[in-house]
Every structure is written in C-alpha cells, then in structure tokens.
Write a protein that binds this DNA or RNA. Sequence first.
RNA 1: GCUGUUUACCG
Length: 246
Amino acid sequence: ESTFDLLLRSLCRVNLLDFAKKVYDYMKADRIIPDKSLLDYLVSSFSNGGRFRIAEEILIERAEMCNLKDETVSPFVYNKFLSLLISRNQVDKAVEFFRGHILKSRGFRPDNFTFNIVMRGMCVAGNVEKAYELFNVMRSFGCHPDLVTYNTLINGFCRVGNANKAQELLREIQLKCVYSPDVVTYTSVISGYCKLGKMEAAGTLFQEMIDCGIRPNLLSFNVLIDGFGKRGEINSVLKIYERMVS
RNA sequence: GCUGUUUACCG
C-alpha cells in the first residue's frame, strides 16, 4: 500500500502522468484506499500537467470522502486547480466546477483565495458583472472581501473601460477603513484611465497615491509613461521619467 | 511544525 504511495509520487515527480493514472486506476480497481495527502498530491500533479479531468475526478471523490467524516478538502488543492484552469484559458470549466461542486458540496469550504481566483477568471473572460455578483454574495459563504478582492474587481472594471466604477471602488476601500488602497489598487485605476486616454485623471491619482505615502514602483511608472506615450505627450513622458530616476 | 494557492503596465 505504501508501495503504491511511493510509486505514484515518484511517477508524478518525473512527470509520467499517464503512467501514474494507470497505477491510480489499478489501485482503485483493487479497492485500495489511497491516503488523503496522496490524493492531494495527485490532484496538484495532474493539474500542473494540464490533466484537468482526472484532477477534477479525484477532487470530487476527495470531497465525498471528507463529507462523510465531516472534514473539508484543503483549499490549497482546489485553489491551485482553479487558478491553473484559468491560466490555461479554461475559465468556463473553472466557474462550472466552482458553482457545481465547491459551492454545493460540504466537503469544500471556499476561502477568500477561492473567490478571488474565480472572480479574476470572470474578469479575464470580460465578465466583470458576474464577478461583481460574486463579490456581493461571498459574505454569505463566510468570506469577506479583502484588498486583493477589491483590486481584482477594480482591474476587471478597468479592463472593460469602466475606470469610473474602478475609482468608486477605490473610494469604497478608503471609506471602510479596514484596509487601505495599495500600489496595486492605484496602479490599476491609473491604468484604466490611461487606456481611455484620460491622462489628467491618471495624473491626479498618481499624485494622490504619492500624497498618501504610497511609493510608485516600476510598474506604476510604466503605466503612466505608456499612457502619455500613446498620446504623443513626449514632454510628460520625460517629466515622469525624470521623477522615476530621481 | 514547515512549504505550497489569489490582484496591477507594455509586449
């Protein structure tokens, strides 16, 4: 039994995933119950290798096992699964698994990361509104929006050209006073304005960020420089550059 | 016990 365990882990480590799958099937056929941590390891390995169907299958079995014992699957495992799906352009699959299993089965207990990952998936698919809906219901699952949640949404709105809504959310963070906008928050909104060619609004926010004691980083400068550059405002570009190197 | 999961620019 621990022989299978070692074998499977070794096969995964050297990326012989098809072989690992066969051994896994063999184990199941022989009704050998794999260890939980082995299952988690298999899910991660299969996910990393893009074998999402198998990973999903194991995750579902894992959740059922947990359900019987009043336990939950470690969010790390399925959060990675979800983010990999999204990074490989399979947002629909990720959302489907999230809605169909993670939110439905008691064997899963989504955390902030889970919501943030799925929301970002929706945003990259151009569906900020769906992400916004999730944002509004995550509390009912015991998850409270954090700064990354806001930053993800803000970026989603910027992506579809709604920098105003993005800025509104920035103000909302400030009003709540539980955490403050950071360099990512500001850079996102600034970038949203730059994309619209609204360089005045972008510049104002840039200054506000500095006044709030947040140091712009290389990305922040790039956003502004790119924005001014695309409008042909070379003098502004030079000014920013000067500030950057000083 | 430790490690492992999420957010910003251009390309």
